[in-house]
Design a protein around this nucleic acid. Sequence first.
DNA 1: GCAATTTGCCAAAACGTTTTAGTAGGATAT
DNA 2: ATATCCTACTAAAACGTTTTGGCAAATTGC
Lengths: 371, 371
Amino acid sequence: MERGTKGPGSRPPVSGRSVTIRDVARELELSITTVSRALNGYPDVGERTRKRVAEVAQRLGYRPNRNAQRLVTRRTHNIAWVQQDNDRKFVDPHFVEVMAGVLRGARASNYDIVLASETPEHEMSVYDRFVNDNSVDGFIVDLPRENDRRVSFLLEAGRPFVVHGRDGRTAQYGWVDIDNYGNFYNLARLLIANGHRHIAFVNGDEAFTYALYRRRAVADAVADGGLPQDSVRVYNSLHPMGDAGYKLTTLALSDPLVTAILYSSTLMAVEGHAAVVRSGRRQVAVATMDDGLHYLDLSPFAGQFTRVCSSLREAGGAVIAELIRQCNEPGPGRGVEIASTFELAHGVDGTVLNQPIPSRRRQTQRRLQPA
Amino acid sequence: MERGTKGPGSRPPVSGRSVTIRDVARELELSITTVSRALNGYPDVGERTRKRVAEVAQRLGYRPNRNAQRLVTRRTHNIAWVQQDNDRKFVDPHFVEVMAGVLRGARASNYDIVLASETPEHEMSVYDRFVNDNSVDGFIVDLPRENDRRVSFLLEAGRPFVVHGRDGRTAQYGWVDIDNYGNFYNLARLLIANGHRHIAFVNGDEAFTYALYRRRAVADAVADGGLPQDSVRVYNSLHPMGDAGYKLTTLALSDPLVTAILYSSTLMAVEGHAAVVRSGRRQVAVATMDDGLHYLDLSPFAGQFTRVCSSLREAGGAVIAELIRQCNEPGPGRGVEIASTFELAHGVDGTVLNQPIPSRRRQTQRRLQPA
DNA sequence: GCAATTTGCCAAAACGTTTTAGTAGGATAT
DNA sequence: ATATCCTACTAAAACGTTTTGGCAAATTGC
């Protein structure tokens, strides 16, 4: 075999050499130090010189080589976001909404998002790689479970990260979340206060804390409302979308006593609505968490869904904002709770519109939103 | 102001120094050259030495600094994917499906995806940056328009890129696409062959080629079927989801002659279905493109939608595969057309199930799928 | 037994930045 | 007049790899 022969991989497709800081310095008859300091806004550069440098850099189309910068500064301006490749549940359309907020915030601060996916078995090796190979400054952690191993790993590694959601260790890391417990407690109390005694709860996968906390909230509301626990029947979909809405609603309605359905997502509520209509049951109330999915049109259901509203996009923006803050000022992460607003349907009953809201309901509403 | 004071930015949060190739070399009493060549599979390293190197590297937890590697090799193993931040249409849930395929393929080949978003006005500056700052090897281009400026820019820049979709310049670049024209021609011909004379076509935004080509196909099918052009009425949604399905269907059904609706996406078809049901019109046939959206449950509509099926996830996998190929072997990009399959509903009419398929329809089906 | 080849390893250069540790020279203070 | 302090610049080191070019020692060919 010949001497210089490469092993694996192959040669880069060398396209035209790009202009370096050296070219700019040569053109100006300045040192590269001065060029660098001029462009990076250091104070020990004359105003006149700074102007000239900026002008020539612009004219020559100089762009600092990011890899050289990253090598020496040890900052990448990249944030890792690892998606779990589940085969069945690969990615969630809710994710798109969060991503919109994350991307917008990242761009505004000149950060990029490095996206990767890996199967659950190998997932941690991706984190391990990112922690050790200097390719990102921090991590976004999605959809936490209780005692999430990603959180444990990143705490151990001492890298900046922000969790969208939370587990039981919120004091130890930065997170952004809505008040899942409070919101679902209020929704359940509201249904009970309006006389519903048999409620179906179509929840997500309770392996995730968001769904777990919602379930606990509903159970507590039932208890606090003085009803027996079996007043609420919980239906879980391991996939927050998919067959959840329609099939689980149909299943729930096989109990003739059910008068209200509580959904964990508008995606499920919309699908479930079709099942309600098809069942011919007209006295079923629908309440749901509304994440403000930007692409889902709720107008056909106007006034038919009682909702707790919160923008996932806004949450995404808060996640990246806190993460970038952590990258810039070392220290403990902060928790951010995103506010939610309560939207009563004209009537809680999905089919009876424009029915005046009884005073007791208003009172409940006021109690639920203490300013 | 003090001397060494930094200008903008701030110090990196220095966490424990990581282990370098130098540490491995020192431990083994070898040169860093040998360690590098051993780890990179060069042939001029003794088998015994290679084993020792691998063992020590593993034991010490050595991970090559990606930025150093990238600086010297000029390859990043990163692919850029720039999303257009539209405010109204930020991201499309179809995107999640494509992304699933892209991410899976990228991971399998040890590539990462760098995601960024920018408003339409500044979009090109992001491409400009990525082209010049050495942070990515290639680009994914989404949702092309005719004479797409991103395509023009990347052709000019001479960087590897793959378009998901196509414009009129397919000979010049790599792309992955379904046969939008052929699929919609066949769908329209099928409806016409089944006696439908007044068809509504709920299409996407025809500023994008996928929708434009679909529209042309339907127009041609109408002509070839011997019908006047106004037999088909086209409704466009600038947003492929949102209010398209329900509102446009309601609008379409305000024409009492309409007996068939052709949708550009199952998302719209599902929403539209609710409008059909609500309208009380029972003799309306529904046909749609089915992109295999993984999170959308079509089972409630089983047998009611005639569909042309193609997996966006598969397309995403093909996009990244072709892109990585381009990065490794310089040369012209290749076009890849993804196959689609045809699924007739039991009856084309959405409400009459289990009606035997008339022989003429079967014949049509066979003609549409020539093996 | 000697030349030629192969094997296994290495020193040094290179990649393109930022940062450190200065240095002249002018201004200011005493 | 002299010491001190700014101002505006710079040479060189550093970041952590890969690659070039080469060199002894071992092996092979004749």
